[in-house]
């Protein structure tokens, strides 16, 4: 009987220890979306500011005159790349004994693909992943630009 009690007790202690061990790794995470008011990197561009761009007419010089030189130019695909990043919410992560909180951000890219005569072939604004914690950014800029280039769909300025 004493042996059984000892075994049960050992089992119970084992279960508690296991539970505590598992709780050690239990975490919770909350994401609270917010308005995209604050630009933290680059210069925000909207459809009105891009209204002067006409496919087949506007050339690179005119774009640079209006928007400034692009931060990046993908030579092989004749694509001008502008970008800006906005705050779009906060996240809170909790775990036993600690936690963290911070802002989440979302990046937008304005992509303007030119034709061999350096005139606009097509352009568009693509948004980043809805929840971008910096290090959890699922796709790199390069991947997102590549995806847009491969889509081959002519589009007016808009947000995907």
């Amino acid at each position: 009987m004493n042996g059984l009690r000892t075994r049960l007790s050992r089992r119970r202690v084992g279960a508690i220890v296991s539970l505590l061990f598992l709780l050690r790794f239990a975490v919770g995470c909350v994401y609270i979306p917010g308005p995209e008011w604050t630009v933290i990197e680059g210069q925000r561009l909207n459809a009105d500011q891009l209204a002067f761009i006409k496919a087949g007419e506007t050339d690179r010089a005119r774009i640079e005159e209006q928007l400034g030189p692009p931060p990046y130019y993908w030579v092989d695909f004749q694509t001008m790349i502008y970008h800006w990043r906005v705050e779009n919410g906060i996240f809170v992560v909790g775990a036993p004994g600690g936690g963290a909180a911070g802002i989440t951000t979302k990046e937008y890219l304005l992509l303007i693909q030119l034709d061999p005569a350096n005139r606009v072939r097509r352009y568009g604004i693509i948004g980043g992943d809805p929840l971008t914690l910096g290090f959890f950014n699922i796709k790199s800029r390069r991947e997102r630009i590549r995806q847009w280039l491969a889509s081959g769909i002519d589009q007016e300025a808009g947000t995907e």
Partner: peptide
């Protein structure tokens, strides 16, 4: 419970 504010960037990480 300690709380820290972070806004990591891919470059920083």
């Amino acid at each position: 419970m300690s709380v820290s504010i972070t806004a990591a960037t891919p470059a920083a990480l």
